[in-house]
Structure formats: structure tokens, C-alpha cells
């Protein structure tokens, strides 16, 4: 059984088909890249997976159970973490507090009215920050972080509920080349040690070919190729509509 099974996923906006009948799987222990030119439907696809959008048709199953049409917070509770294309963090909190909130949520403690939040799950938060290399900045306000650091913080937050699947939307967008490699190496490391699955979208082909175990290609909402990076790269269709268009 695959970790995530997507069958016939479709979504249209006002008659325009953004995603049409897309079917794929994500397995534990792999980094699956979802690529495609601008407007191919990657973000729409992503947003349906974590519940931000409701699909018009199709089914999404996580660990064999349907999560179709669930709200993002329900999907998250099942064990799916997510990072965003434009980082979404809590700017009025410190770096550690961002992670603590996720941990509190994971442990079902957010309804507590009187305990002091900043004293809770400090060690776990520190460990997560350590893992993404943000431990030294734990006390800083999130609002002053550099962009690359925010991306890493998001990753730490996404890991707080020990997800089995991680959805990363453009994880390296806006980062310097060196940072990109470091971040994806970190993701690859997490996949390996925790045996989780990662689905990510990416513009930078160098990043994709360097890290993806497998890739799928979307064009105009349809899935046009899937397979190992080398095979996909050789696919003439992909070369024509995707790689060709880049140059």
C-alpha cells in the first residue's frame, strides 16, 4: 500500500480546468517531485491534497483512508505536514514558540487557558530546531528572520506532528543556491531517517534532479509523465512542453 494514493483528481475554476484526472502515488521513503510550467496546476493540486481546496472529482487516500474533502487541520491531524510557497509563520512569536504552538496543537493542549505556553515542550521544540539548524536562533522573534531561515523554521513546524507525509510547495523558492542544496539535503535526510514520504513542487530543475527519487510532470492540469528523473528527462513530450519552454 502506498502512503498517498491520488485517483482521478480534478478541479475547475469557472469552467477552466486547473487539474484534470490526475492519478499518482507517493511512497514512504521517497522524494517525489511534482513539476510543470507555470499554470500547470501544481499549486491547485497541492492545495487539494492538504484540504485547502475541495476537489470536484477524484479521491485522495492517505495510509489507505480517504482524506478527500477534509479540512486542512483534519488532514494535518492524520499525519500530513505542509510548508508553503510563501512562508506562513507566526510573526509575533519567537522561533521556538512557532514550533511550540505546533507541538501544543499536536498534543491537543491548545485549549488550555491557564498553563504557561512558553514552558511547554521546550526540549522537543529545541530538538526540532536543532534538526533544521535553527537552534541558535530559537529566541529570536520570527519577524526578523532571513527568508531562508523562515523556510527552515517552517520545516521544523511541519515536522512537529511527526508526519508520515510532507508536502512542500516550492521549498527553495527565493533562496540562495547554497541554501537550496542544504535545505533539500536536509529534507532527503529526514526522508531517510524517518522513512516518510515527501511530495514537493519545484521550479529549479537542478534541485529536482539532484534530490528527487521520482518525478511526475503536470501540463495544463494533466499528468503527462511519471517515473525516475532520468527517464522523465528523456521523455520527448516533457522536453517539448516543459524543458523546451524554459530556454
Amino acid at each position: 500500500m502506498s502512503l498517498l494514493e491520488v485517483r482521478g483528481l480534478s478541479k475547475a475554476f469557472g469552467g477552466v480546468r486547473a487539474v484534470a484526472n490526475v492519478t499518482f502515488e507517493v511512497n514512504a521513503g521517497e522524494l517525489l517531485a511534482l513539476i510543470g510550467p507555470n499554470g500547470a496546476g501544481k499549486s491547485t493540486c497541492f492545495n487539494m491534497l492538504n484540504g485547502q481546496l475541495t476537489p470536484d472529482a477524484g479521491a485522495i487516500a492517505f495510509e489507505g483512508q480517504s482524506i478527500t474533502g477534509m479540512k486542512p487541520r483534519q488532514v494535518w491531524r492524520r499525519g500530513v505536514g505542509r510548508t508553503f510557497q510563501i512562508t506562513a509563520t507566526f510573526s509575533s512569536m519567537t522561533v521556538r514558540e512557532n514550533v511550540q504552538v505546533a507541538l501544543l496543537s499536536h498534543h491537543g493542549r491548545l485549549k488550555s487557558l491557564f498553563t504557561r505556553a512558553c514552558d511547554q515542550f521546550v526540549d522537543e521544540a529545541n530538538a526540532l530546531l536543532e534538526r533544521v539548524g535553527m537552534r541558535p536562533q530559537a529566541e529570536r522573534p520570527c519577524s526578523v528572520l532571513a527568508y531562508g531561515d523562515l523556510k527552515r523554521l517552517e520545516l521544523a513546524v511541519a515536522l512537529a506532528n511527526k508526519p508520515r507525509l510532507l508536502l512542500m510547495d516550492e521549498p527553495t523558492a527565493g533562496m540562495a543556491p547554497k541554501e537550496r542544496i542544504a535545505l533539500m539535503a536536509l529534507a532527503a535526510d529526514i526522508v531517510r531517517t524517518d522513512n516518510i514520504g515527501v511530495l514537493f513542487t519545484e521550479h529549479d530543475m537542478d534541485v529536482v534532479f539532484a534530490h528527487a527519487s521520482r518525478m511526475i510532470v503536470l501540463n495544463r492540469g494533466e499528468l503527462i509523465a511519471a517515473g525516475a528523473p532520468a527517464a522523465v528527462r528523456a521523455d520527448p513530450e516533457v522536453q517539448r512542453i516543459y524543458l523546451g519552454s524554459r530556454h
Partner: peptide, 15 residues
């Protein structure tokens, strides 16, 4: 505060 700072992120971590 999480809901105020980023409703998107708050929702995505189960709030």
C-alpha cells in the same frame, strides 16, 4: 495569536 498572524499556517497545524 496564531490565528491572527497566519490563519493559513494555523489551519495547517491543526488549529
Amino acid at each position: 495569536r496564531a490565528g491572527r498572524d497566519s490563519p493559513l499556517r494555523a489551519d495547517a497545524i491543526g488549529i
